[in-house]
């Protein structure tokens, strides 16, 4: 796989990758990576090497946290993490300064932290189907947000 040095888009949804394939971290030209519906429990920090990645789809897996390596992907504009088991959002998510689309619906979140208020390019976010009791007011300072879903399950 590492021979495919020019690959910019890889769609590998609905397979049996219980572990994140380490070879993917070598494909540094990737701009789109879909690994949804694979039953993955963790994503290694080396994923941060995918510096050109713009759309990362990790939805419908078994992630219990936002992978730290994902927070280092500063070119990311779209991050799909819905339908996992994420209970808490990392403050490091504030590093995702290019992010415009964030889907976190259908997880186990209890709060939306202030860190997300730093995502100044955010235009769309979904938090519905969680257990959210608290939304940091900072989120509403994201001037560009046009769509925000926070309804209860």
């Amino acid at each position: 796989m590492s021979q495919l040095r020019g690959l910019t888009a890889l769609y590998a949804q609905s397979n049996s990758f219980a572990r994140f394939p380490a070879a993917l971290c070598e494909l540094t030209t990737l701009r789109v990576l879909s690994l949804s519906m694979n039953g993955m429990r963790r994503v290694p920090s080396e994923v941060a090497r995918l510096a050109a990645l713009q759309h990362f789809d990790l939805s419908d897996n078994c992630l219990s946290e936002v992978p730290l390596g994902v927070c280092g992907l500063s070119a990311l504009t779209k991050l799909d993490l819905h339908s996992n088991s994420v209970a808490e959002l990392r403050p490091e998510m504030s590093q995702l300064t290019s992010l415009a689309h964030l889907s976190l619906h259908t997880n186990c979140l209890k709060a939306v932290p202030p860190a997300l208020g730093s995502l100044t390019r955010l235009t769309w976010a979904s938090f519905n189907n969680n257990q959210i009791a608290e939304v940091a007011p900072e989120l509403f300072r994201c001037a560009r947000v046009a769509g925000l879903r926070c309804s209860a399950a």
């Binding site: 796989m1 495919l4 020019g6 690959l7 397979n15 070879a23 993917l24």
Partner: peptide
């Protein structure tokens, strides 16, 4: 792995568990 000019690859909805080369 011979297709060194490959830009877009869709391998979704299979039974893959490894991409080891």
């Amino acid at each position: 792995c011979e297709l060194t000019r490959l830009r877009s690859l869709n391998v979704g909805y299979n039974r893959l568990w490894t991409l080891e080369a």
